[in-house]
Each structure stands twice: as C-alpha cells, then as structure tokens.
C-alpha cells in the first residue's frame, strides 16, 4: 500500500508541469519514504528524512520557485535517448538485484560480518544504547565529521552564490504574517517548546532516535518560524548573520577539537576512550561533545541557507 503510494507519487511528479505541485509531491514522497523507514525500523533515518526531505528540501524548493517561475515550459524534447539510458540503468539494477540476498534474510552477509559486533558489543564497548548513535559517532565518527563538512561546504557554496542580501522589505518590526497579539504569544510559546524539543533530541540521541543533526534542523526551524511571524529583520537581530558564520565554524572546531584532544592524549584522532578515566566514560563524553558540534554547525548552516534564499529578490522585482 505504502509502496504503491510512493510509486504513484513519483509518476505523477514526473508528469506535472506545475512545479508547485511537483514540490508538494516531493514533500509527500519524502514523507512516505520516512514512514517506510519507520516500518523498516530505521527510526533515526526516518526522523532525518522527515526533517530534511519533507522539511528543509521542500522549503528550499518553494523558495526557489518564488524566485524563478512556477510553471515549466512545454516540452520540446525528444525523450528517446533519456528513456534508453534509464532503461539500461534499470536493467543493470534489476540484473544486480537478481542475486541479492532475500529481503530481511538474517543470514545475509550484511548482517553476518560487521554488524554483530555493533549490535552485541557496542552497548557495552561504547556504552550507548542506541547503536546507530555509537556507530555514527564513534566507530564511523570520521564519516560523520565528513558529513558535517559537507553541510558546511553547502553553506559556503550558497553564501558564495547568493550572499546574504538585506533589502528594504525587511525593516525592523515589520511583521510578515500579521499583527495579531494571540498569534505572537502562541508562536512564542510554540517556539519555546520547539527549542526544548530540539534540546531533548540533541541530548537524548544516545538513548532514542535523534542526535545532533536532527536537533540542529529542529532548532533552525524554530528560528525560521520566528522569521515568518516577526519578520526577518527582527529575527536577524536575535541571531545576527555574522554570528551564524562563527557558530558554524565553532561546531566544527568542537567536533575536530575533540578528535585533536584525543591525539594529544596519545590516541588516534577521534578516539574518545582517551578522554575519560575509563574508556566507556571517555566514549560518552566524546559522543556528547561531537554531537553538540554537529548540532551547532547544522543549525547555523541551515539557518544561513534559509536567510540566503529568503534575502533574494525576484529578478523582475529588482528596480
């Protein structure tokens, strides 16, 4: 059922040339994928896909549509070559799948080689009940540093391309939605709750789904809502742009600094065992610090990207 929905969404998205509808379909597609991930017991992935795919990506796509055009031009292209390429690729995929281990087979090599240690020993070795967190932050912590660098790179790239432009539309105190007292109060309370939730996600990642990345995204969302209701200029007074840059860099320094600290203590880069009086304690501390680093950088970068998009004018509105 879910799978059919996904397939239909994808097909409809191909055919529509109203890009607004396509973006909405993309949001639905991501959301359905997140549900599918839940069914597959990938809670962390589901959480992230919902926040990123259905959240951030969709918002960015909508911002782009605001700056470009809503409707796609009528098709003038010959679809034969692309269809051929896709056909060959699909054939290769199907061919490869024919010898794949059965879905869910506990004897598949994937579950037999590396995974047993992560499943059986990581809770004692690293001391974190959420195995995804211990693999992500400790065993494969270097990949995660790379991941933070990827998002930081994206932030720099967007800044290089769009810059942060401040226009006259963003005078202080100008409200984006309306000057309703009720709305303002409700939103302020709501934002407080969102932030609280973000903190919970940040620090509860050891035990349940969540972690620095998801927390950063949620925290950024709180500011985006503040932006929408109280106007961008006000929001920027709360969190000035140049501070975001510093925060983004700080997150990376915190992450890599944790790694460097273990180097100074005579261990390998990112070997947190060096940080505490016993290895498990060190792992705990290390994971806490690097997750915080991830959260800070992700928050700052996502908000910067959002500001960069929302600060742009449509070309026909530029006088």
């Amino acid at each position: 059922m879910l799978l059919t929905c996904l397939a239909i969404t994808a097909l409809v998205a191909i055919r529509r040339n109203d890009l607004f509808a396509v973006v909405m379909l993309f949001g639905i597609y991501s959301f359905l994928t997140a549900v599918l991930f839940m069914n597959l017991h990938a809670v962390d992935v589901a959480f992230t896909e919902a926040a990123v795919g259905a959240g951030i990506s969709t918002v960015l796509m909508l911002s782009t549509l605001r700056l470009t055009k809503r409707y796609e031009a009528a098709r003038r292209r010959n679809p034969i070559l692309p269809l051929l390429v896709v056909g060959v690729t699909g054939a290769a995929l199907v061919y490869g799948m024919l010898d794949a281990p059965r879905f869910g087979d506990p004897m598949a090599p994937v579950h037999q080689h590396m995974a047993p240690r992560f499943v059986q020993e990581s809770p004692t070795e690293v001391g974190v009940p959420n195995m995804v967190t211990s693999v992500l932050a400790s065993y494969r912590g270097y990949d995660t540093l790379g991941e933070v660098m990827v998002i930081f790179t994206a932030g720099l790239a967007v800044l290089l391309l769009l810059g942060i432009r401040e226009g006259q539309n963003h005078r202080l105190g100008r409200l984006a939605i309306g000057d309703t007292l009720v709305l303002r109060v409700v939103v302020k309370v709501l934002i407080a709750f969102i932030m609280l939730y973000a903190l919970y996600v940040q620090f509860h990642g050891d035990f349940g789904a969540g972690g620095g990345f998801q927390a950063g995204v949620i925290f950024a969302t709180a500011f985006v809502i503040y932006d929408l209701i109280f106007g961008e200029a006000d929001a920027r007074r709360v969190m000035p742009t140049h501070w975001l840059g510093r925060l983004a860099a700080m997150g990376i320094f915190l992450y890599a600094g944790t790694g460097v600290a273990s180097m100074f203590l005579g261990h390998a880069f990112l070997d947190y065992s060096a940080l505490g009086h016993d290895p498990v304690h060190g792992q705990h501390l290390g994971i806490l610090l690097i997750e915080l680093g991830v959260g800070i950088t992700v928050f700052a970068v996502i908000l910067t990207i959002f500001h960069a998009f929302s600060g742009m004018r449509r070309p026909d509105q530029v006088s």
């Binding site: 990938a42 992935v45 990123v52 990949d143």
Partner: peptide, 18 residues
C-alpha cells in the same frame, strides 16, 4: 535491525540536502 545501513544513509541524506 542492522544499524550500519542506517548510519550510512544518515550521512547520505545530509549529502542529498547539501
């Protein structure tokens, strides 16, 4: 479930949004 593919995909999702 096997946590490794989950970890890999968390990274890939970030790459995707970037």
């Amino acid at each position: 479930s096997n946590p490794v593919p989950h970890v890999l995909m968390l990274t890939a999702i970030v790459v995707g949004v970037a």
